[in-house]
Design a protein around this nucleic acid. Structure first.
Lengths: 242, 242
DNA sequence: CAGTATCCGATGCGATACTG
DNA sequence: CAGTATCGCATCGGATACTG
């Protein structure tokens, strides 16, 4: 039996919303992802086949529209009005999660790639100082890691944003070396970043002033206060990240 | 893999909330159900084993507390503060469903027992005229029905409420004869009850004045306007319905 | 890249029976 | 009544390979 066999609106909405992976797909769409590849980058552990199936189901349910991409092949997946109205529910889940799931964060939930993906689309980054800033990240403590260390470079330049997986041509302004679990939790606002730094689990090298402000334009200070603005629907699609 | 492997609060909350049946169980708990039997009456299609499993999971997740019932065996399942904070999310799903799922209501979603169960706990009934009112319901068009007709008696008496499955001792004040699908949709506010009555799919016998007010204290007039107050947490547990 | 088709293994979950 | 234990199958969903 697929559905719940109840006419109750909660049941009928749950048949659509509470399927496995669907809340995450909706989160991605609400963040502005519109293409298959973007969606999969935001929900990396879903299989392509299942993502395609869920997207079809969401189309059938009237939650998204699917139109062929003008540029060559592929489709564009866009929330309908009905789909957009899931935003408050996703926000509600986010708020609930932020408040109550700290203690359930396990090693399996850590993912350096996804962390950088999340950092990249955090609207707080817009508050970073003007000009070009290059932040190098070096994570250790990768669980089940093929490699024990992970490197990323975050490049901000006047509103432009990029994540690189190898050293870019530019000079590094900040170098963050951290345990992945500590940094993830600190970034989420679950741990006090000052305490983590004192304990040596997070270190930031670079100009003191920039290192200070880092935690602000990373959004950490806000999130630690319980302020989680929902992702703006202004997220740019398809800016390449390689 | 059980979880989603993401630290994102939406993902972690969805791991708890968006499991199969869980939104319905939470709806029941938010409506005031506290005992195993009540929960199963509100979610009739779930198996006992699975209901027990979900309740254990919700306890582990810190959403409910489970305490032995003082009266003999069995437990009492009560929402924690964390659990109560799902209320706005359930309300959100309800609102979304009420707005968008009309067209997805199929024969499998019709259930006369559950309809009467839902009617019984509708807070609107408190607005019924004082004194004793006995409403007989006779449903036809039962899908996949073992019997093609279904009878119920709703007895209101000064705030007391009961559903009976056989003719009570009291005289009937109103007799409702209706197609189950029509009445369900009308009760939900999805169809215009006047139109259904004109078409002969719903008939009400009894004093004109009472028959008129019927649709108001059944909550239909409100729901048709889009007003769906969430169930009060005042629902009385365990009042017998046999 | 953007999917689809096929295979097949894990498990979710319903049915039934059992217990205090 | 309020669950628990066991069984068995359907299907969910991951892996791999294929297509335009």
């Amino acid at each position: 039996m697929r559905g719940y066999g109840q006419f109750c609106p909660v049941a009928k909405a749950a048949e659509i919303f509470a399927e496995r992976w669907t809340p995450l797909i909706l989160r991605e769409l609400l963040c502005g992802s519109r293409y298959f590849g973007d969606l999969q980058r935001g929900v990396p552990l879903i299989s392509r086949a299942l993502l395609a199936q869920r997207l079809r189901e969401l189309e059938t349910a009237g939650v998204i529209t699917v139109t062929p991409k003008s540029s060559g092949q592929g489709h564009e997946y866009v929330l309908t009005d009905a789909g957009k109205e899931f935003q408050s529910i996703i926000e509600g889940l986010s708020a609930w999660g932020q408040k109550y799931v700290k203690r359930f964060l396990g090693p399996d939930d850590l993912d350096a790639d996804f962390l950088m993906f999340s950092i990249r689309r955090d609207p707080h980054l817009a508050q970073a100082p003007a000009g070009r800033i290059v932040v190098a990240f070096q994570f250790r403590g990768i669980p089940a890691g093929n490699r024990s260390l992970r490197f990323y470079w975050l490049i901000l330049e006047d509103g432009e944003l990029d994540i690189c997986y190898r050293r870019p041509g530019f000079e590094e302004d900040l170098v963050v070396k951290a345990d992945l679990g500590s940094f993830t939790r600190a970034w989420l606002g679950y741990l006090d970043y000052r305490k983590e730094m004192r304990a040596g689990r997070i270190a930031i090298d670079g100009p003191a002033k920039l290192a200070q402000s880092f935690w602000h334009w990373m959004g950490v200070v806000d999130r630690a206060k319980g302020v989680w603005p929902l992702y703006p629907d202004a997220a740019k699609p398809g800016a390449d990240t390689a």
